[in-house]
Amino acid sequence: VGHSAGAFNAIAAISDEDFLAPYGLRATDIKAVVGIAGPYSYDFRQYGGTSAFAADATPDQVMPDRHIKGSQPPYLLLTAEKDKIVYDTNTIKMTKALKDYGVTVETGVIKGASHATSIGAMAAPFRWVNDVRAQVLTYLDKELN
């Protein structure tokens, strides 16, 4: 499970078997993947994200929607309805890339959520803010049991 850059990192690591191989792992060793409001497919050169990548990097070199390799676990990709930082096009493109590769993908929208509250409501005291916690736990219960 990851949110925002954490979702990018989790999905990038799991979706490309070459990342996990040096650790003796395969993507299918992971039983389920959850990405919340992840920037999986965008041109970081236009949106202030250049410091996160090599100076000469391009989106084709680093975006996870362009590097799916090996057998994959199922994915849940969630977007925040009112996210003004990471737009839903990232999830739309990542979902398409995974499905085109033959991966099982579920998507969902966290109603009323902003980028921050899309993860903040995972904390028990803030469950009332939105249903992200319920969506994630329901998905994991289904996939892991």
Rank of each mutant, 00 (worst) to 15 (best):
K31M: 10
D29K: 07
R45F: 00
K31E: 12
A57L: 13
L78N: 09
L20F: 08
Y42G: 09
A54S: 11
I30Y: 02
P73F: 05
A80C: 10
D18H: 09
A52F: 14
M63C: 06
H67A: 05
D56T: 15
R26H: 10
Q61E: 14
M63Y: 06
D43H: 12
R66L: 08
Y47D: 06
D56E: 13
V62E: 03
G24R: 10
I36P: 01
A27I: 00
T50Q: 15
L25A: 13
D60K: 10
S71W: 02
Y40F: 15
K82Q: 11
K82C: 01
A80N: 08
G35T: 11
K31D: 13
Y23H: 10
A55C: 07
P64D: 04
V86L: 01
L76D: 00
S71K: 15
A37R: 04
Q61I: 04
P22E: 06
R66W: 09
Y40H: 02
R26Q: 14
D43R: 10
E81D: 11
T79N: 13
P59R: 10
T28M: 09
L20N: 01
T50H: 05
P39H: 08
L25D: 02
A52P: 01
I85R: 11
K69W: 05
S71F: 06
M63H: 10
R66H: 15
S15G: 12
I85M: 10
D16V: 06
V33P: 08
A80S: 13
L78H: 05
L25Y: 10
A32F: 04
V62D: 01
K69L: 14
P22K: 08
A57P: 04
L76W: 08
Y47P: 02
S71H: 08
S71T: 11
